[in-house]
Simulated assay, not measured.
Amino acid sequence: MYQIDDYDLKILTLLQSNGRLTNAELSELTGLSSSQCSRRRIALEQAQLILGYHARLAPDAVGQEMIGLIEVKLINHTPNCVATFHTMLENVDAIIDAFKTTGDADYLLKVAVANLQSLSELISQILAQNSSVAHLKTSVVLNRLKENGIMIPALPTTAGKN
C-alpha cells in the first residue's frame, strides 16, 4: 500500500484543482524539484491514487444542460437483480455518476440530459423499464453551485435593474 506523505497530499490537491499543471509548476508550488514531482506523480498514478485527467466541460458545450438526481430502490438485492441494474448503468451514457447509498434509496444517480423531455424519456423508457427497479424519485437541479470540489462562479443577477 502506498504511503501518502505531505508532499504527495499537496500534489494530489493541486492536481485535483488543475490537472494541467506541469511538473515545473508543481515543483514551484510544492518546493520539490521538477524531477521529484515527476517521480511522485508517476508513483501516485501507478498506485491508482490518480485515476485520470479530465476536462470539466460546461453542460451546454455537450448539449446536456439539464441535471437530474434520481434515487433508485431495487426490487431486491439478489446477484442477478444487482447485475441487471449495473449493466444498465454501464450502458446509459446519460447517467454520469452512480452511487450505492444507505437510507431509503439503494442508489443515487446523477444524470445529464438536454431537456425535460429527455429526462422524462430516460426515466420512463429506460430506468422504469429495468426489471430490477422498484421505485424512482427524481429531483431536477435548479442551479449548480459546486461540482468536483470547485465553486461555480455565480451569474450576475438582474435584480434591481430597470
Rank of each mutant, 00 (worst) to 15 (best):
R39S: 12
K161E: 10
Y2A: 06
N130G: 03
P153K: 15
Q48N: 15
V113H: 05
D104L: 06
M1Q: 13
G63D: 02
H86M: 12
H77I: 03
G19K: 11
T158C: 00
I11E: 02
T13L: 02
I150Y: 09
N18E: 05
L44I: 10
S132F: 00
I4S: 15
T102Q: 05
V82R: 06
N162M: 08
A134W: 06
I96K: 11
G103R: 03
V92F: 01
L136Q: 01
L116R: 13
M151T: 10
S38E: 02
V72Q: 02
K100H: 02
H135P: 00
L49Y: 12
L26G: 00
N23E: 02
L12C: 10
Y107A: 05
H86P: 01
M88H: 02
V113S: 11
K146A: 03
L108C: 11
I42Y: 06
V140T: 11
K110R: 15
H54F: 15
A105E: 04
T87W: 02
L122K: 05
E71H: 05
L127E: 02
L155R: 15
S33F: 04
Q46F: 09
T158A: 11
S33A: 04
Y7E: 08
N148S: 14
R144F: 01
Y7R: 11
D6Q: 15
E65R: 14
Q36A: 15
T30R: 03
S132T: 09
P153F: 04
V92H: 01
L136N: 07
L142P: 01
E121L: 08
P153Y: 06
T138R: 00
Q16C: 04
V92N: 03
A105L: 02
N115D: 15
Q46G: 05
T78L: 09
G103V: 06
L155A: 14
T158F: 01
L69A: 07
Q16F: 08
A105G: 09
V133M: 00
I96D: 10
Y53W: 03
T102F: 09
E45L: 10
G31A: 07
L12D: 05
I96M: 05
H77R: 04
A134P: 00
M1C: 04
V140H: 02
K110I: 00
K146N: 12
I96V: 14
M88I: 03
K146T: 05
S33V: 07
L44Q: 13
D93K: 12
S132Y: 00
L44Y: 07
A134S: 10
M66W: 05
V141T: 13
E121T: 14
G19W: 06
V72F: 01
L49F: 09
L26I: 01
V92C: 02
R20I: 05
K146G: 10
P156E: 09
L15G: 00
Y107R: 01
K146Y: 12
I96L: 04
Q46Y: 08
L26K: 00
E121N: 14
M1I: 08
F99S: 03
L15W: 08
V92K: 08
V113E: 06
D106I: 04
I152Q: 15
E90C: 12
S139T: 09
Q46S: 11
N76G: 11
N162Y: 14
Q48C: 14
E28G: 12
A58H: 09
S34Y: 01
L108S: 01
G160K: 09
A128Y: 03
A98M: 08
Q3N: 12
L51I: 12
A114Y: 13
E90Q: 14
I11Q: 04
S38R: 06
A128W: 01
S124W: 10
S33N: 08
